[in-house]
Write a protein that binds this DNA or RNA. Structure first.
Lengths: 238, 238
DNA sequence: CGATGTTGTAGTCATTCTGACTATAACAGG
DNA sequence: CCTGTTATAGTCAGAATGACTACAACATCG
């Protein structure tokens, strides 16, 4: 199908930085491209916006398609729009990038147009050293990923977003490991508890304790997400 | 001229929320539309992105065109992208909205495609009461303006952005009036000074005092912008 | 020319929040 | 029952805040 227009023709796409916590590290979903350009290299999942949907709907749809779930169980928000004229060599593509995050998603299935799909540790992609480094990302997706990580890092400070990374019910040590994974360094144990428990509506306690871990030790109390969305004053990073 | 494409045809535009401080109030630049749709009503200035430029370049270009200056002397940043399928009744238009701000700009000249252009007090537009209310904005521009104001309000808390609203050199009372205009209520006098002067690189003092005001009183010391960009911990609002 | 009202500048003080700790309680496994 | 490990509670000096009061400098009016 072809279209005509009296204005410069743009394709409008959404790209997704989908984050989760895997093995105590921040991980992002990438797909291996099956087609040119950048065939064989890895990229953020995404797709074109259809005529009858807005960018957010397109992002939700792509989330379902890429993860294979019929309802993506996490958080989604717009990041920013990337519009350099030469960012896609085929044609002019403007990409409305989004950030998504969810608790511990399963290993993804390869999508229709993607050769493969898997989780990557974000730090391996962005601070890759000589020995353990990830692939070079297609298009401007390295920059998008950098911006997306910074958004998540910042939002952990002044919102309750971290609870979206853990499945309910969860323990405070689990929640603290989210901060450790995203920030690269864990917040002080006691001060973290004081802040979370002292912020009205951040978490609500249950009367059940969690399972025993392999490391032993006292079993932690389980909590659920509260209704609060902002943390003020913010939780200190570093 | 017409174009063809194999993807759904989108026009990509930039819209601008240009802020300044006029008579102690936050003001925004609007243009009166000369064409349908919404002919005769007021809208944020904007225009289509050209094939060889990215959104930011398009925004700078529009800034120059709408203000009539050959170099816009202020700050510009991307806000977010609005993409509802029916936001423009003519065709599918995705708008990458931006926020711009500058010190005390002159009364604008009517642009080429706009019937008229002038500054409006933002609160009159957004919280307009029965007697003194501004016009209803075209398209989804009321929502864009709401988001843009909230962005500016938030950024005054944790950045030195306020200095972009005043011309150099400036006095601390002038700078404080920026916060009063944007937040709707002035920060406490003493605490404001302590915070600004205590933040390394927020402002740098000169050894000159400002002119006498009509209200009399001691003449305030003049300052210039410093190199700092963040204020931490943030300045408290309210 | 001094009184007066206005505005800028400096400093105080109780309260809150933080950062860096130490001590204790609960649990698993040998 | 002992031991290592983890969760939970509490302490304390220092920093930042919010709400003030006191003082200095200036313009103008009488």
């Amino acid at each position: 199908m072809t279209y005509t227009s009296e204005h410069p023709p743009f394709a409008v796409a959404v790209d997704l930085a989908v984050f989760t916590i895997r093995d105590g590290a921040l991980a992002v979903l990438l797909v291996e491209r099956g087609e040119e350009p950048f065939a064989g290299s890895w990229a953020l999942p995404g797709g074109f916006v259809e005529p009858d949907e807005d960018a957010e709907q397109a992002a939700w749809r792509e989330l379902r398609e890429e993860t294979g779930m019929d309802r993506f169980p996490g958080h989604l928000e717009q990041l920013r729009t990337y519009s350099a004229p030469d960012r896609d060599p085929r044609q002019r593509v403007v990409s409305i990038a989004h950030v998504a995050l969810a608790p511990d998603l399963p290993e993804p299935q390869a999508g229709t147009d993607a050769a493969d799909a898997r989780w990557w540790v974000v730090d391996d992609l962005l601070e890759g050293t000589a020995d353990i480094d990830g692939p070079t990302l297609a298009f401007d997706h390295r920059q998008i990923l950098l911006d997306a990580r910074e958004r998540v890092r910042a939002k952990l400070e002044y919102t309750t977003l971290a609870t979206e990374f853990v499945a309910e019910p969860f323990t405070l040590p689990e929640l603290r490991r989210v901060y450790a994974a995203v920030w690269g360094t864990p917040p002080d144990l006691g001060n973290f508890r004081r802040k979370v428990l002292g912020t009205e509506g951040f978490v609500v306690p249950t009367d059940v304790r969690g399972e025993a871990t392999e490391a032993g030790g006292r079993r932690a109390l389980l909590y659920r997400r509260g209704t609060a969305t902002v943390v003020q004053p913010p939780m200190a990073r570093g």
